[in-house]
Amino acid sequence: MAIDRRPARPGLVRATRFTVLSAAAMAAAVSGTLPAGAAPQNGPDELRSRVNGLYQQAEQATEKYDAAQERAARLRGELDDLQGELARSQAEVNRLRDALGKVAGAQYRDGGVDPALALLLSSDPGDYLDRAATLDRVDSRRAGQLHALRDARRILAQRHDQAAAKLAELDRLRRTLEEHKRTVQGKLAEAQRLLAALPTAQRDAIGFGAAANNRTGSPGPGSAPGSASGSASDPVAGLADLGPLDGRAAEAVAAARAALGSPYAWGSTGPGAFDCSGLMYWAYQHAGMTLPRTSQEQLSAGHHVPLSQARPGDLVIYRSDASHVGMYVGGGKVIHAPYPGARVRYDPVDMMPVAAVVRP
């Protein structure tokens, strides 16, 4: 596509355009020009929106990855338990067969094997009891042993089927995890390519530079819940105006504050790195409470309160799909793990659309 090289009309300023086609196109866009054939994009606002969108999509895939990973861990535990039950069931079948085998051996030494036992000890005696009436060779004690063996074999077969089903589900989950992992890595790589093509000042200007990570120390200006502006205050000190803070919430807030400056790592629950829901999970573990693993599940991890009544320790769930979460710490601030390349930090509670405030 040819570039319009006519001079701009007086009084008008062309918006700098950005392209995602290549780093070269992005660099040219930053300087205000585009190479031929490059698809023009809008300026910094469009770039900020695009990077935010990519990080949101990566976070959505991360939460799905976390959920699948949690399900896989549960399945592995269930499979371990089932394998123990299988071993016990097999041992019971072996014990019953051995007991009846000894009877058959005694009969053989006495001059013949009861046809009932011969059938029982064959490869498939499951229908024996249905046919035993025609043989008329089983006493009540023997019938009880046969019933026990048949039931033990039935249980063993059921557990074999259950184990096979769980193994098949684990295999499906493995493929699902790989798919979510590829999605996360692809979205993050695209966002990082966009940002890498910008100078440091430009990255800072759109909120994705090193300046944003300076919020890992002092929380800076605070405000009442529900607003991003107000008087400066420490988010944990002076909580009288925020209502009573129970010991568990205080411990969770202290843990979250201890994580300030830790890097974001998708799928991680600490202690050295976190994704958004992983930080909440880790902080509340320190308070003696196990939260669900994902932000979508954490949406139902307590009762909901209005944002205006938020107290330190409350979970602030973001976006309509509940794909991000932070912890309210007072003063109009949350602590959260923002996105890859960033560190756990303070941000205004209304940094993005709030879906719910949850008090665990």
Rank of each mutant, 00 (worst) to 15 (best):
A2L: 14
P7A: 13
R9Y: 08
P10L: 14
A15T: 10
V20T: 09
S22C: 14
A23D: 01
A28F: 04
A28I: 07
V30Q: 09
N42T: 12
D45L: 15
L47Y: 02
G53N: 06
Q56S: 13
K64R: 12
R76E: 03
R76D: 07
D80C: 05
L82H: 05
S89C: 04
N94T: 15
D98Y: 14
L100K: 00
V103F: 06
A106Q: 08
Q107I: 05
G111S: 13
V113D: 01
L117N: 00
A118Q: 01
L119S: 06
L119C: 05
D124E: 08
D130G: 09
L135C: 10
L135N: 11
R142S: 12
R142A: 11
G144N: 14
A148P: 06
R159G: 09
A164T: 13
A168K: 12
E169T: 05
L170Y: 04
L173E: 06
H180W: 05
L194N: 00
L195W: 04
Q202I: 11
D204C: 09
F208H: 03
A212Y: 06
A212P: 02
A212I: 10
P219C: 07
G220W: 04
G222L: 02
S223N: 15
A224I: 06
P225L: 13
D234S: 15
P235R: 06
V236R: 01
A240T: 15
A249C: 07
E251F: 00
A256N: 06
A259E: 01
S262R: 05
F274Q: 00
D275I: 07
G278T: 00
Y281S: 02
Q285M: 03
H286I: 00
G288Q: 09
T290K: 10
L291Y: 04
L291P: 00
S308C: 13
D314M: 10
R319F: 08
V325P: 02
M327N: 03
G332M: 02
H336E: 14
P348F: 05
P348G: 09
M351K: 08
P353V: 12
A355K: 12
V357F: 03
V358A: 04
